[in-house]
Computed example of a mutant assay.
Amino acid sequence: MALELYNPFDELIFDESFCFLTGKLSLESVSVFPEWLLDHFKIGDDPFEMMEKEKIFRYRDLRLPCTSEVKNAFDQLDEKFREAYQKGYEGIAALEEELIFQWSAKIVYGIMHHEFQHEKKRMARRGEEFQISKDLKERFGLFHLMLQSVIKPVKFKGRKPWSLVVFPLKYSADIFSYRDDMINLLFTMGVDQFGFIIHMQDNGAIAEREQELLEKMKGYVLHPVQYEELYAKFHYSDYLLQYRPKYNIEFTDNQVIIESVPMSADQNRPLFGFWDQKVYAQLLANYWEVYGIRQEDIIRHQRPMLSFLQDPYSHDFIDPEKIDLPF
């Protein structure tokens, strides 16, 4: 008999009585954002705004119901990440990619859990049934399956399901920069000494698209404005990706093996759609708002598009030390 694993998206279960990862009776809970991280940056009591703007949590109130087994597993995972965090970029870069995925995926799933739980309750008050599309059920169910690798024999074979880039980053010591896109399974985190960006379900396609730029980055400690630009590239590339990732999944008696299928285009359409500079500039302006950089500053009349990553003429990587903007 093949190994059977829990999938909350079959019945859209986001109840506090059941473990988010196993579906068993919940006796414990685990913080969505690690408590040591909240304490370090003193953001535990800061507001966390949900997609529905009227609902606001505190960071420390975001918790996931779980069994003691799941709590222990994530506590051990988090301790490994914390030890690497304390070593800065070198520590994080030395971590196995799967561990970074698991650590980040718990945060993304935790936000998803609270978003869906809130929406389910809101619709119930209106006498309506909460539903999500078949495609999202499939995507999120697969994401949940991958996250179960923390406690179950879920193995990744060959090509990984994600794009992940880790890089040195110079930031003010008190800044915690974080963004997520739970629908498209994107996550990024930037602090002093390091940053990383992960797309959790693109089979490496976006990292391959940006491979030339990522090679040019090596040896540099990025400025925050460069970090934001890099994430904007990942985010917009995800929007342009025209194919769904595919997987060969083998269920055996004692394990699940997930093998990512390389993405390839057919003759009718390319892997990525047309890159619209105006749309990209609008997205990038949102990330650069803190610097007072607007869309009209990015697309400039009769001048190359503004970039802090590459020189528009030579295409060389721009030395972060030459960027005259605050950290």
Rank of each mutant, 00 (worst) to 15 (best):
L222D: 13
H223R: 09
P224M: 08
P224Q: 05
V225A: 09
Q226M: 04
Q226Y: 07
Y227H: 09
Y227M: 10
E228V: 08
E229Q: 09
Y231A: 09
Y231P: 00
A232Y: 05
A232P: 12
H235A: 15
S237L: 15
D238T: 03
D238Q: 13
Y239D: 03
L240H: 02
Q242H: 04
Q242A: 13
Q242P: 02
Y243F: 11
R244I: 14
R244T: 08
P245F: 01
P245C: 14
K246A: 01
K246W: 00
K246N: 06
Y247A: 00
Y247T: 00
N248A: 07
I249Q: 02
I249N: 03
E250P: 02
T252H: 01
T252F: 06
N254P: 00
N254T: 06
Q255R: 11
Q255Y: 03
V256R: 11
I257D: 00
E259D: 07
E259K: 13
S260E: 08
S260F: 06
P262C: 04
P262S: 07
P262F: 01
S264N: 11
S264A: 15
S264V: 02
S264P: 03
S264R: 13
A265K: 09
A265R: 12
D266P: 04
D266V: 02
R269C: 00
R269H: 14
R269L: 01
P270G: 15
P270C: 12
L271M: 13
F272L: 08
F274H: 11
W275F: 15
D276L: 12
D276Y: 14
D276G: 08
Q277M: 08
Q277W: 13
K278L: 08
V279D: 15
V279A: 15
V279C: 06
A281Y: 08
Q282P: 04
Q282Y: 08
L284T: 05
L284Q: 10
A285S: 15
A285D: 10
N286I: 04
W288R: 04
E289H: 08
E289A: 13
V290W: 13
V290Y: 12
Y291A: 01
G292F: 04
I293G: 03
I293D: 02
R294A: 07
E296P: 05
D297Y: 12
D297V: 08
I298M: 04
R300V: 12
Q302R: 15
R303N: 04
R303E: 14
R303C: 05
M305R: 09
M305V: 15
L306N: 06
S307F: 05
F308L: 07
F308Q: 01
L309V: 06
L309A: 10
Q310E: 15
Q310C: 10
D311I: 03
